[in-house]
Design a protein around this nucleic acid. Sequence first.
DNA 1: GTCTATACATTGATAGAC
DNA 2: GTCTATCAATGTATAGAC
Lengths: 193, 193
Amino acid sequence: MDTRERLIESARELLWERGYVGTSPKAIQQRSGAGQGSMYHHFHGKPDLALAAISRSAEELRARAEAQFSGPGGVVDRITAYLRRERDVLKGCPVGRLTQDPEVMSDPALRGPVAETFAWLTGRLAGLLAEGREGGELDTRLDPAATASALVAVLQGGYVLARAAGSPEAYEQAVDGAVGLLTAHVRRPAGGA
Amino acid sequence: MDTRERLIESARELLWERGYVGTSPKAIQQRSGAGQGSMYHHFHGKPDLALAAISRSAEELRARAEAQFSGPGGVVDRITAYLRRERDVLKGCPVGRLTQDPEVMSDPALRGPVAETFAWLTGRLAGLLAEGREGGELDTRLDPAATASALVAVLQGGYVLARAAGSPEAYEQAVDGAVGLLTAHVRRPAGGA
DNA sequence: GTCTATACATTGATAGAC
DNA sequence: GTCTATCAATGTATAGAC
């Protein structure tokens, strides 16, 4: 991994752990093993490097989610697999975390990837739910868009509960609750993969 | 309002807007109109003042929630009223926000009020749901504890979605989705206040 | 109780040698 | 491309006068 790459990966880790305000260029340099001048050679400054890091985290989140959404099984199976996928629960969501950072939200360039990620995620889930409803797997009374938002919110809020409690179980309980509520809307099992 | 009080209120606002790492003693002093020495006379330092501010925000959240929980109507009415209560959605949750702050979570004193708040909130909601189930208002298949966690998570995650989208509508959509899912578990309308 | 002065570390960046 | 100065501003306090 070259210097530029190490800088991006170190910035990603630190943004995840400490957010934008809590992450200094110096800390990024030390974690990556790069010197002062090296960082400023590859990037214009902290915002520029942060943009590279945020964009990559957003892409990664999307790719990992898509892997579950396009997997085998019925719509409810795939959504449940996504919710229950193994996660670093106590570390929180590397993208959702950034919504709490005023400096990220006030900079359109940094904010862009965050906004796009959640727009895509809720849209993709809404599409799956609509598919399940049309295929007869889900109750017709279920509102795909609203339900999709609620499911993404349970994930993001589950991280908050887990961090507050200091235990991943709080996340799992929230997901159990969401899956339990969703299950009441299942009309018939999926027709298999 | 005396100086000590103005310091606490200014710290509360800044912690809400910018988090612990993003809030400097200097900024608190300027917002409150107090001088350097004045702040260090009333508090031992930043963590001490932050503890006072966090404790008060936690108490306030609890009081406001309890006002809805002990209000009129059936269990589902009261929970829905709580979820749909008017909120400064784009500002986020003053307590939940702190879970993203590594310096808050690593200090047991600062973390305490945050952990207690969410433990109380999910417990209180679980109690209401259990009450609704025993009274015949809710389906017996509904798991009170898991559902309570999911509802609190929808709130916290709804804030994240709203901030990402830059609009309170994202929060409202998530709440609509949660209420829609919960409604499927209602067996009969509540017996009135 | 409040003020001003002082202090020392960190932040975010630039300059210029190599 | 990377390194070592250097820098002005900010962060988080302490000291001591009033």
